[in-house]
Structure formats: structure tokens, C-alpha cells
């Protein structure tokens, strides 16, 4: 088994990459994908803690957490894409700073 710290570091890198995507991308779908990467890092973190840290407590909170996060992420994608499609219908763009009636 890999060490817990190694998994955590890998997750931290994944999380930061996702954050970079959110902060640098301007296309709504790509921002959404980046957020999904961040959520993946979180789920992995949760599972890692559950598996490693607290086996002696016999609790599987982290695994349940990861499960729910994945479900929520899916719902989030569905809803966000609904909004993207709606925006595109009205404005013919999916870029968040081209939809700039409001200041971004």
C-alpha cells in the first residue's frame, strides 16, 4: 500500500490543478470540468482518510462522504450544463467572460 502522505500529496496536486483550471479557463464547460477534478481530489482524500487513518474507529464516514460527493457532482454537472445550454440559446456563447452584460 502507498503511504498516506503520498496519496494526500497526489490529491493536493490534483486539487491545485483543478483550481488552476477554474482560475484560468474562461469556457463554462471547462471550468466545470476543473471543478470536477477538484471534487475528485476531495473524494480521494476522504477515502484515503477513511481507509488509513481511522480503521480502528471502524467508521466509514469518509467512504460514504466520497459516495455522496460523486452523486452530488453528477447532479451539479447536469444542472450546470442545463444553465450553459440555456445561456447559449440566448447568447450563442459558452464563455463566461463573453457573457459580459454583467461585470465578471
Amino acid at each position: 500500500m502507498p503511504a498516506l502522505e503520498h496519496i494526500l500529496v497526489v490529491n493536493a496536486v490534483l486539487f491545485a490543478i483543478g483550481a488552476m483550471g477554474v482560475l484560468t479557463r474562461r469556457n463554462a464547460v471547462l471550468i466545470l470540468l476543473s471543478v470536477e477534478l477538484m471534487l475528485n481530489a476531495v473524494s480521494l482524500n476522504m477515502v484515503a482518510f477513511a481507509v488509513y487513518g481511522h480503521v480502528d474507529f471502524g467508521n466509514i464516514t469518509g467512504i460514504v462522504f466520497a459516495f455522496f460527493i460523486i452523486v452530488i457532482a453528477a447532479a451539479e454537472v447536469a444542472l450546470a450544463l442545463g444553465i450553459v445550454v440555456r445561456t447559449f440559446r440566448n447568447r450563442a456563447t459558452a464563455n463566461v467572460d463573453e457573457v459580459n452584460l454583467l461585470k465578471w
Binding site: A12, V13, A16, A19, M20, T24, R25, R26, L30
Partner: peptide
Amino acid sequence: ALFGRSRPLGIAASLGLLAALIGGI
């Protein structure tokens, strides 16, 4: 048009985040 204008800032911010996270871990 895939990248925003504040790209360097975003990269710097996420690298800072990364450093903080790894340091903390």
C-alpha cells in the same frame, strides 16, 4: 478563447495553494 485574461494570476494563485497544501500535509 479558452483562457481568461488573468491567466498568470490564476496560475500563481493555484501554485500558492499547492505549496500551502503540500506544506501542511
